[in-house]
């Protein structure tokens, strides 16, 4: 079993901010727009170093998406930044028409995604964004798991031509991805090999899956763990290879079950290789105020729930 080491907890949004600055230094076509959340999105360093390429749009997200779409006409690569809810639900039709249908090279970067946004409560906790974004043709949907991977993902999406939704979070979480690990859009990362069950996780729940794996090992269950950082396009092959070996699967995500990663995996398996499956996700409910860890527990997204889901799915297998 690989011993994953937390290199020091950090917030994923800081990985985004660091990469954005790096990108700005490398390519003058990189521009950034923010709707009055520059500090929260960790875009200050870019804003300070490249004021002529940073656009503070105020609390006007619809206009921000339109400006970004327009900036691509002329070869700019715009990165928009605001919270996940205001990056998606607030501007869904703007993204649909001006970005996705028009196939514009806009990078929609969404922080404070999921329930771990915490104390601000349900108005700000986006649990539907993956579903909304993955339904749009032309849209690539990425959900990295930690600081290093968010940084790598940010660099990678700049090289990808086409609309991208990049989802990351607010709290400091374990940082365990090797800093030099290559980020390939659409290519899953196999973290742990095992024969008894496949755990497929995204975002903050990847670390929880690794924690669950250690507990399961103590019970004699060898879990295979796949980090799906790209929800669309889904790495069908990596999932099928693993599931054909283990015969059962548990998905884990900080998102609504409807429309999330588990839903994409289920669609794949139902069509190509049906096996018992459990989903660790939010069950058709809004969140609430609280500390991130308290919320993960209350809404069934923590390590113990993952362990239970694995035991359930193995019994069904």
């Amino acid at each position: 079993m690989i011993d994953f080491t937390n290199l020091g907890s950090k917030d994923t949004r800081s990985g985004f901010g660091e990469a954005l600055l790096e990108l700005g230094r490398k390519d003058e076509n990189i521009v950034a727009l923010c709707a009055d959340l520059t500090g929260s999105l960790k875009m200050n360093a870019f804003a300070k170093e490249f004021p002529e390429r940073f656009f503070e749009v105020g609390i006007a997200e619809a206009n921000m998406i339109g400006l970004a779409a327009g900036l691509t006409i002329g070869g700019k690569i715009p990165f928009t930044g605001t919270f996940a809810n205001f990056s998606t639900a607030r501007v869904y039709d703007q993204i649909r028409q001006s970005v996705a249908y028009s196939n514009k090279n806009v990078k929609i970067c969404a922080s404070h995604a999921g329930i771990t946004l915490g104390e601000d409560g349900a108005t700000h906790q986006s649990l539907e964004d993956i579903g909304m974004m993955k339904m749009l043709p032309n849209m690539t949907v990425i959900s990295p798991c930690d600081f290093n991977q968010t940084k790598a993902a940010t660099l990678a999406i700049a090289r990808h031509i086409g609309p991208v939704y990049l989802r990351f979070g607010r709290p400091k979480v374990p940082n365990f991805t090797p800093p030099d690990q290559e980020f390939v859009i659409g290519k899953a990362v196999l973290l742990e090999e095992g024969n008894d069950v496949t755990i497929i996780a995204t975002g903050h729940l990847v670390w929880k899956a690794l924690e669950a794996t250690r507990i399961l090992a103590g019970k004699g269950i060898r879990a295979e763990v796949i980090n799906i950082h790209t929800i669309k396009p889904l790495d069908d092959e990596a999932i099928l290879v693993s599931v054909k070996k283990t015969g059962c699967v548990v998905s884990a995500e900080e998102h609504m079950r409807n429309g999330g990663l588990g839903d994409s995996i289920a669609q794949l398996l139902v069509r190509q290789f049906p096996v018992p499956m459990e989903m660790v996700a939010v069950d058709d409910t809004f969140g609430e105020s609280g500390k991130p860890e308290e919320l993960l527990t209350k809404y069934g997204l923590d390590t113990p729930e993952l362990v239970e889901a694995v035991q359930r799915v193995i019994r069904r297998n």
Binding site: A62, G66, L67, A69, G70, L71, G75, P78, R96, S98
Partner: peptide
């Protein structure tokens, strides 16, 4: 045609973005 339109209210934002791009490019 450089941008889809029809769902109303979006074109002016896009045009402003394109205008800013022109400025950045010295166009």
């Amino acid at each position: 045609v450089r941008m889809a339109s029809g769902s109303l209210g979006q074109g002016l934002s896009v045009a402003l973005g394109a205008a800013i791009a022109k400025k950045l490019n010295g166009d």
